[in-house]
């Protein structure tokens, strides 16, 4: 039945495969074509410029700063998102009154429209806003969050993490509930302390989920646009201008679609490289992998 079965296999994956080809691969090919052209958006004229846009990227004085901000932001978001997501999941993976309520509370920002969410935070993070009001209650003179580089970066990272960590928490919760209770019992009988149990048993057992969340979170972080657009507009200076925001500016605000496509392809390359690295490394640390 091999050949017939193989045919069924192709049939089963056909909708997904064709979908990806049509809505992802072909557009990427078009984006590559655009990146080799200058496009006068008002007249609709494409002018072939070869590597001109790529040369422009190399010569762009803003790009090093943009890439730096991208690395700091994505790194911060991924690290915090996974640590906090895991911590919340561990705390809420017990039976106690209110656990369900707290799960819902931590998950709730995920369903709030990102625009509404960021608008509210933008207001709370004003110099005379709610965050500094709370800090003043405990005697701390809060900084003018969005007006200088480092604190603005902290602010956009924090709001992104708070908004999206709920998904990771739920994924981790699910993973934790899959860890057999007997393993914990046995470890406890052997006299292992909680920290050991966590690092020696829990973590390895949920490592496939860690891999999945790491990938989802990196892709999400590299694509978070609305937070930056609403909170800081990439400022002050270029301090929070991450690559995706820069791409959007070039392509949609400055109407430089050729250059925007070039930078977008660069973003795609980063995502790919990071993912391939993670995928290669997975055999080293993912417990179950085939």
């Amino acid at each position: 039945m091999g050949r017939a079965d193989a045919a069924t296999g192709y049939l089963f994956i056909a909708p997904q495969l064709v979908g990806v080809l049509v809505f992802v691969i072909v557009p990427v090919g078009l984006a590559i074509w655009y990146s080799l052209n200058d496009w006068n958006i008002f007249t609709g004229q494409l002018t072939y410029v070869g590597g001109g846009n790529y040369q422009a990227a190399l010569d762009d004085p803003a790009l090093p700063s943009v890439l730096g901000a991208t690395a700091v932001f994505s790194g911060g978001v991924v690290a915090l998102n996974i640590v906090l997501g895991l911590a919340l999941a561990v705390m809420l993976n017990r039976r106690f009154k209110g656990a369900v309520l707290f799960r819902t509370l931590f998950f709730s920002p995920v369903v709030v429209s990102v625009v509404a969410w960021t608008l509210v935070w933008g207001f709370l993070l004003q110099d005379n806003g709610g965050v500094n009001g709370v800090l003043a209650l405990v005697g701390v003179d809060g900084p003018n969050w969005l007006q200088n580089g480092p604190t603005a970066m902290v602010a956009v990272t924090f709001t992104q993490v708070v908004r999206s960590v709920g998904i990771n928490m739920v994924l981790f919760l699910a993973a934790l509930q899959g860890v057999p209770g007997e393993l914990y019992e046995a470890a406890r009988l052997d006299g292992a302390d909680p920290r050991r149990i966590f690092f020696r048993i829990t973590l390895p057992l949920i490592s496939p989920t860690l891999l999945l969340t790491a990938i989802i979170t990196i892709v999400g972080a590299l694509q978070s646009f609305a937070q930056i657009a609403v909170l800081t507009e990439g400022g002050p200076g270029l301090s929070t201008t991450v690559l995706v925001y820069y791409v959007f500016q070039q392509a949609f605000s400055f109407n430089d679609i050729g250059y925007g496509s070039t930078l977008a392809l660069m973003l795609l390359t980063f995502v790919m490289v990071l993912t391939v690295i993670q995928w290669q490394l997975r055999r080293k640390w993912v417990f179950y992998e085939d």
């Binding site: 557009p27 078009l30 984006a31 995706v244 795609l268 790919m272």
Partner: peptide
Amino acid sequence: VLIGLLVPSEVTIVP
């Protein structure tokens, strides 16, 4: 197919 998960929408939105 997995590439579909990794391509940011900014790359594909104009095409």
